[in-house]
């Protein structure tokens, strides 16, 4: 409660939390959009999302060890994860696309454990960060301090988002992806190779996660076991925003970032993860309760 008083006494501190939170939310939104893509097109909820993010982070981290500036890690991580995603699809996911949801959830859950543990074996369990050395921006008589990388991250998020939309609208395969999302059967009948569409979609999602991870490792820290929270954040954002709604995903992402930041400050950072996971439960139950009044349920 002391922290609440602090916010009342120093309103400028709320501003710090708000800006920090919104900028964090932009990064969450990027991975969330990938999840919405896979969910909408393939009807798979990809629990592996968070591990892709962390893997992208490790790619950027090791690139920075080689002396390359970590910002270059964004495209490199995206490309690397695109390949990983394609591989995962060819090895496992293509077998579960049309199976029931239990199998797809559990299989992606299994892959996420596998990746987690592999990263633990290969990279070690240390908490790591790739500092881009971009300095800090001070506002309002130095009362508000924001790391510059967060603004860069926001810009990158916007650019990547715009590129993605352009790709889905204009390119041939992008149009095929959107057609498949509407009706896989109809798309197949019209001669679209849905298997390739699925592979591209899944790899594209992994690439988005890779870019996200690259931003995460520059902004915060990563370790092999922190992936699941990114999956849950993505999931929450998509549940709130709905599928195929990019604007909604951005707004929900920013909202989540801000709310989480305030909660982390008020409850103490040791409860921030607890807050995120509890929020997931609350959001789902609340949405379902609202639908229940209309005699429907989340589906």
């Amino acid at each position: 409660m002391d922290n609440l008083l602090l916010l009342v006494d120093a309103p400028v501190f709320s501003l710090q939390l708000l800006i920090d939170g919104l900028l964090a939310g932009a990064i969450f939104a990027l991975a969330a959009y990938g999840m919405a893509l896979v969910w909408g097109v393939m009807n798979i909820i990809n629990i592996t999302q968070g591990e892709f993010v962390i893997l992208g982070g490790f790619v950027t981290l090791y690139l920075s060890y080689l002396g390359v500036h970590p910002l270059w890690g964004v495209p490199v991580s995206a490309l690397a994860l695109f390949i990983v995603g394609w591989g995962v699809y060819r090895l496992v996911i293509f077998r579960i696309v049309d199976r029931d949801l239990f199998i797809s959830i559990l299989a992606t859950f299994g892959i996420s454990i596998l990746l987690q543990q592999l990263m633990n074996q290969i990279f070690g369990a240390d908490i790591q960060n790739a500092d881009p050395n971009l300095g800090t921006l001070f506002l309002f008589n130095d009362d508000v301090a924001i790391a510059n990388i967060k603004f860069v991250a926001l810009a990158i998020t916007i650019v990547v988002g715009a590129l993605l939309i352009l790709f889905l609208r204009k390119s041939r395969i992008g149009q095929a992806i959107r057609a498949t999302a509407q009706s896989a059967r109809a798309a197949r009948l019209m001669g679209i190779d849905t298997d390739r569409v699925y592979a591209t979609t899944y790899a594209l999602n992994a690439a988005l996660c890779g870019a996200t991870g690259s931003l995460v490792v520059m902004t915060w820290v990563i370790h092999p076991f922190i992936g699941l929270i990114y999956t849950v954040r993505s999931f929450m954002i998509v549940v709130v925003a709905g599928l195929g709604n990019l604007a909604g995903v951005v707004v929900a992402g920013l909202g989540l970032g801000a709310v989480e930041n305030f909660a982390g400050f008020l409850l103490g950072t040791e409860f921030q993860a607890a807050f995120v996971f509890s929020l997931l439960v609350i959001i789902l139950v609340w949405r379902n309760y609202r639908l229940g009044k209309k005699r429907q349920y989340l589906r």
Partner: peptide
Amino acid sequence: LRGHYFAI
């Protein structure tokens, strides 16, 4: 909740 939503 049902399906995916219950599991997650």
